[in-house]
Design a protein around this nucleic acid. Sequence first.
DNA 1: CCTTATTGTCTATATTTAAGACAATAAATT
DNA 2: AATTTATTGTCTTAAATATAGACAATAAGG
Lengths: 246, 246
Amino acid sequence: MSQNLHYPSEQGYIAQLSIDCVIFGYRDRQLHVLVPKLNFNGEFWALPSGFVYNDEDVDAAATRILQDRTGLADVYLDQFRVFGKAARTNLSFLEKLIALNPDKLGEGINNRKEYEWITRRFVTIGYYALVDMNKLVPKQNELDQSIDWYPIKDLPVLILDHNEMIATALETLRENLDRKLIAFNLLPETFTMKEVQELYEAIFDRPFARNNFQKKILDLNVLERLDKKFTGAANKAPYLYRFLNR
Amino acid sequence: MSQNLHYPSEQGYIAQLSIDCVIFGYRDRQLHVLVPKLNFNGEFWALPSGFVYNDEDVDAAATRILQDRTGLADVYLDQFRVFGKAARTNLSFLEKLIALNPDKLGEGINNRKEYEWITRRFVTIGYYALVDMNKLVPKQNELDQSIDWYPIKDLPVLILDHNEMIATALETLRENLDRKLIAFNLLPETFTMKEVQELYEAIFDRPFARNNFQKKILDLNVLERLDKKFTGAANKAPYLYRFLNR
DNA sequence: CCTTATTGTCTATATTTAAGACAATAAATT
DNA sequence: AATTTATTGTCTTAAATATAGACAATAAGG
């Protein structure tokens, strides 16, 4: 029993239910998504995913999956949609993976129970997370060949419907940004107003008028104004701000 | 095998995954929810619920569950949230139910497999539906003692977290009402402006100014103005409208 | 024909959003 | 030390939208 404990089917997970996390970060005026690449032959990218233990809250499972790849415990995380097509199965992806990795995965093919468990149709719950990219060191899983940030406009082709999931997560992020006041989760502890504006411009992929944007954000009354930030540039130094309700 | 086919565990459902539907209707200036009462001793109300067949889209399962109780195939239906606490189990509810119905459910207790299947922890996907209450005849399930519309302000205490689910569904309805232009799904084919306003007032539980409300709705450009509606009342007859994109 | 209750729409006012303008300023340049 | 440059912070103005007030139109009833 103990030697098979790494098999999902033996771990006490809820069967046919998974969680996928779209982890958003922000850097260089671009929204990024954290995407691991599988440690197998072939080019396979997949969102950070996992299953739900039988004695675990679904939200807790999402937090755990997130912490596994980010090391962060306290992160903004929200459900955005369930993806539940009947045809939603790992089968074709796994067939390709096995064909390209006969040595590594031969055992898996022979383990009928395991193969049956993982190739069944899965209903997945999509979560999106907002993190401060700068204070995060992506952690490689035992399954990862690498794990990297990709600009949302330059994503690799991911397995299954994961690209569609990212698109839906972005839509949800846009809808919730002002309503739930969550943009500041993507920024460092302190930031200038220009940085907030550039973040908004990256998320909505459109410019905002500087004067009115500053007024709108300040009128939210959720920012504390700190000292000025002297960058050495030959112009007026901007103020730094901190988000109050973090 | 065929004699046990009515057991959920034998039906080819995805285990530990369920769907709950909050079916909204509107009548007498009040928002209503369609709630079946279980056909057992004891006062048990539960949202129209069901499971997902292994070869069935999750959305299709929700549509099926909805059609079972409403007879309607073409209804506005939308996911609103997954409820996935680890403690979310039918166990305590079923114990009560069995205690009150020893004759009917004795068999179920003895059917170990069945009992194990149904008392496990369930992750449920919440859907809300908007229907025209007037053209709907609620259909009783084999499990229902009755199925009735309850004003949302006068709901019975339902099993599990179903009351919380209704509250969350209402929040989502309010958020989506203007954005997704879905209010008209709750009204009959044709309606007066006053009826739209009263519907909004029921949903948001607050008054709207008549003059500005009419302008706001007409400015949406989704209503076709029809003939006047002569009610026999001693005053100006209102116009009837029809929603264009239904 | 007058009255009543309601409807449709107009006008006026307040508020919000968007656009334009400009002084303040941090450092580099003269 | 004065001048220049590239921003920043904020004010003013204009446009759009939301809210409130007003009133004529009208379908029956008396």
